[in-house]
Amino acid sequence: MCKQLTEKDVCEIIASHQASKEKLLSILLDIQDASGQNCIVEEWARVVSAELDLPLTKIYDVITFYEMLSEKPRGKNIIEICKSTPCHFIKGVNIVNIFEEELCIKMGETTPDNLFTLQYTSCVGACDIAPVAKIGDEVYGNLSKDKIVDIIKSYREAAICQK
């Protein structure tokens, strides 16, 4: 877990983007990265609203529109499973079931240790290796049960090393 984000931190992030309305997405991404909860809670959205002179509902619309942003706390690693057509046809739903079983959570939920959140994403452009899941910047393709077990294990081990 990162340290608790303060209003000063949020204002600094906004200032680093010249408090520019056009940089809203970058500002929100930076706040989310620094949040320790992988999300932008209302408190920080309000600061952005005041600093950029944008209505709070406009900011909320942007946060909820993009899959990469979240208004609700999420785990450290977001497992995004593609729900677009090629992955759908190659039975991407099966890999959802495997992730759910292995993590003991349902789609959209976060593991109790805050390590993983499971969610859908739109096409990530790796249809040749469907079915696909994306974790952070990594794309994992041609997924099978064994591969999924290994992937989850590797993230769990990395987390233990960091501690």
């Binding site: 209302e42 959205a45 209505p55 709070l56 509902t57 406009k58 900011i59 909320y60 619309d61 909820t64 529109f65 208004e71």
Partner: peptide, 27 residues
């Protein structure tokens, strides 16, 4: 006044206050 706006997309697309609060807690 911007008390309400669109949020989410696709089938989840909705019209709501920010963070789904009651109108009484909005503008």
């Amino acid at each position: 006044v911007y008390a309400i706006n669109t949020a989410n997309r696709s089938h989840e697309f909705t019209i709501t206050t920010a963070y789904g609060k009651d109108l009484s807690e909005s503008t």
